[in-house]
Amino acid sequence: MFRSYLRLLLFTVGLLAGIQVPGLVKDYSQRVEAHMLESREALAGFQETAERFFNGDLQALLRHYRSSDDPVFNSDANSIESLMTRNQLLESEWQALQGNWVSRTWHVVAQADPQLREETLKGYSYQILLVPEAIGWGIGCGFLLALLVESLLLGIGWVILGGRRGAVKESWR
């Protein structure tokens, strides 16, 4: 009986943990999009200048600023370069999040920008999404957690008992 309750408890914990995966991916995607839009806005003025004087080439604007003897222009060149680098990072993150749910999830788990992932985790609030992918994640995680822990405990019991079957048999009723 205890084993059945443990199995149910493990499945429930895995279910609730698995349901969080799509919500976390969604929050990360929204955070990336917000930062990307902010980054584009920060570059907009420089982009307009590049359009007017350098046929839209921000790199040419940056080279122009760097070639100046004025320390203010050199400082601005550093600022522009940092904005451009940040924008490129956010654009590539956004592109990575445009795939199917498996690739988005893998990206957030294994390849996401550490700073953005940490920011997302700090601001994340647990939620229960009742969408098919959340239900799938929940059932899959619940089943795997219950299976892994029960298998581990049975393996430990088998080692301790030396491969003999215990005296108490579990009833299937």
Rank of each mutant, 00 (worst) to 15 (best):
R66I: 01
L152F: 04
Y65M: 13
N100A: 08
W106T: 13
N78S: 04
K122L: 14
N74V: 08
Y126C: 04
A146W: 09
F143L: 02
Q115E: 15
L145E: 05
F143T: 15
D69E: 06
C141F: 10
F53M: 08
E119V: 13
Q115P: 03
C141Y: 10
Q59F: 09
T105W: 00
W101L: 12
A146T: 00
L130E: 12
L148R: 13
H64L: 11
L58G: 09
N78R: 08
G142E: 07
E91M: 15
Q88K: 06
N87H: 03
D69R: 15
A146M: 03
L61H: 02
G142M: 01
Q115I: 06
Q127D: 07
R66A: 05
Q98T: 08
S79Y: 14
Q127C: 04
L83E: 00
A112F: 11
V102Y: 06
S79E: 02
T85L: 10
N55H: 13
L89K: 15
L89S: 04
M84S: 01
W101I: 15
R63T: 13
S68E: 14
L147K: 10
Q98V: 13
G56W: 03
N100H: 07
L58M: 06
I128T: 06
W106F: 03
V149H: 03
I135L: 10
T105G: 11
A134W: 00
G138D: 07
L121K: 02
S92E: 09
L144D: 07
I139F: 14
S68L: 06
Q98F: 14
D76K: 06
G138Q: 07
L147I: 08
E133I: 10
P114T: 07
E118T: 10
S67W: 06
Q95Y: 13
A50P: 00
S82L: 04
E91H: 03
L90M: 08
L116P: 00
A110T: 14
A112T: 14
R63C: 02
V108E: 02
F54A: 04
T120R: 02
